[in-house]
């Protein structure tokens, strides 16, 4: 018999210390599974950036989605190693047309990052493992499109960028 799979259904994991989180600690939490090549994720970022919420980002970078999806997820993790996850995320979502390696080096320079360290980190097994972990957990939680938003304990994932109704419900 084939070995049991570990991709069966499981709840979305609770917030953990190595999640990428921004926003006021007391604000309502939204966990976003997303991808830096995804235009709908860029829209979600536009709507969440200044909303009175706390956002946790997890990778949902699929090989078949875009040739650079996984590469950009690794790049964001490499920036995170230098304390610049959100600035890199904002940079990538702000301009999704320039995502080749020289463009990434340019972004690093603009953000004041050490490019040599970035280059080493984005190819490291630790970064690959981290991205794979997020994707794996997203798959188990039923994520099937980007972005998918989870708000509140045990709530089902909601595909698509947040609309005004979603944000208003969070504020209650």
């Amino acid at each position: 018999m084939a070995p049991a799979s570990d991709l069966g259904s499981a709840p979305v994991p609770a917030l953990r210390s190595d999640d990428h989180v921004r926003g006021a600690p007391g604000a309502p939490l939204v966990v976003v599974y997303g991808d830096f090549t995804c235009p709908r994720c860029a829209v979600a970022w536009e709507r969440l950036r200044d909303a009175p919420v706390r956002v946790a980002f997890r990778h949902f970078a699929l090989r078949a989605k875009h040739p650079r999806a996984v590469a950009l997820a690794h790049a964001a993790e490499a920036a995170a190693a230098q304390g610049a996850f959100w600035p890199m995320a904002a940079s990538l979502w702000g301009d999704q047309g320039r995502i080749d390696d020289p463009h990434l080096w340019e972004r690093c320079a603009q953000l004041g990052l050490d490019v040599d360290r970035f280059e080493a980190d984005r190819r490291s097994p630790a970064v690959a493992d981290r991205v794979r972990r997020d994707v794996h957990e997203g798959l188990r939680a039923g994520v099937a499109a980007t972005p998918t938003l989870f708000a509140g304990d045990g709530a089902a994932g909601r595909p698509g960028p947040p609309d005004a109704e979603f944000l208003a419900a969070l504020a209650i």
Binding site: L62, K65, A144, A145
Partner: peptide
């Protein structure tokens, strides 16, 4: 939606075949 579906299912084709399916 069908595009999203095939892209996400393709991610785990190896695991599905690993289950002998």
């Amino acid at each position: 939606v069908c595009t999203d579906q095939l892209q996400v299912y393709d991610e785990v084709v190896g695991e599905i075949r690993g289950q002998g399916a």
